[in-house]
């Protein structure tokens, strides 16, 4: 996957480049709109990460110009601004995504994956999910581990389904709140942890290998190996 990163703050550009490369992307970094346009003219990118506040031009202007140049790759817009510009909302409707700084790396990666998935031809939606000995029947809304049915509430099933779909990848509390409860909030209490704790009590029984891992300060991951 070839990714064009347009970010003028050297510090941020540096850690983003490193982290994205670690995540398996082949990253070209541009420090301003001019060089981004040059790079986009020379190479074909699968996805773009563009900061809104560029020194030489407005990030949105750059995206629109790249679109005019024929760049069809989806764009993840990064912004440190408070208000979401109407034009950003327009781009969101056009299939691009928007992320406010500061963000958790896991969330950036998840959004990139989503953008790429959206742009790739959709395969037939699976009706069963399988992670190690954990199995989810998405139609009957039932989960079982090692062949044994788990007694989950509907909410717990949705939470487990989200973890399974991201098995092996870190999900943050904000991502869980957004995707499972549909809320972009930042509680300063441990509400999500209590849900995970309860779910873990049902999924990881005695004597079984624990599947749901907590990464302190980052989030959770469902082990897939």
């Amino acid at each position: 996957m070839r990714l064009l990163l347009v970010e003028d703050e050297i510090d941020i550009q540096h850690f983003l480049k490193t982290s994205l490369e670690e995540a398996g992307y082949q990253v070209d970094a541009a420090i301003d709109g001019q060089s981004a346009q040059r790079l986009a003219a020379d190479h074909l990118y699968d996805i773009l990460v563009v900061d809104l506040g560029l020194p030489d031009q407005d990030g949105i202007g750059l995206i629109l110009r790249l679109r005019q140049m024929g760049v069809k790759a989806p764009v993840l817009i990064l912004s440190a601004r408070r208000s979401v510009d109407d034009r950003v909302r327009g781009l969101e409707q056009g299939g691009d995504d928007y992320l406010t700084k500061p963000f958790a790396l896991a969330e950036l990666l998840a959004r990139l994956r989503n953008l790429l998935k959206r742009n790739s031809p959709a395969g037939s939606e699976a009706t069963r999910l399988r992670v190690l000995d954990l199995e989810l029947d998405l139609l009957r809304r039932e989960a079982s581990r090692g062949g044994e049915l788990l007694q989950l509430t509907p909410q717990e099933f949705v939470l487990l389904e989200y973890l399974c779909r991201n098995a092996g990848r870190v999900v943050t509390r904000s991502m869980i709140l957004d995707k499972v409860w549909g809320m972009r909030i930042q509680p300063d209490t441990n509400v999500v942890d209590v849900h995970i704790y309860r779910l873990r009590g049902k999924v990881d029984g005695k004597g079984q290998q624990p599947l749901i891992r907590t990464l302190r300060g980052v989030g959770y991951v469902l082990k897939d190996r």
Binding site: E9, D11, I12, F15, L16, T18, S19, G53, A80, R81, R82, S83, T100, K101, P102, F103, A104, L105, G217, V218
Partner: peptide, 21 residues
């Protein structure tokens, strides 16, 4: 407020990224 947000969020982004790394 936008300028304040921008000027504070940018270093916070860098700090957070470095910490995560």
């Amino acid at each position: 407020t936008d300028a304040l947000a921008h000027d504070l969020r940018s270093p916070l982004t860098a700090i957070r990224g470095k910490l995560e790394m």
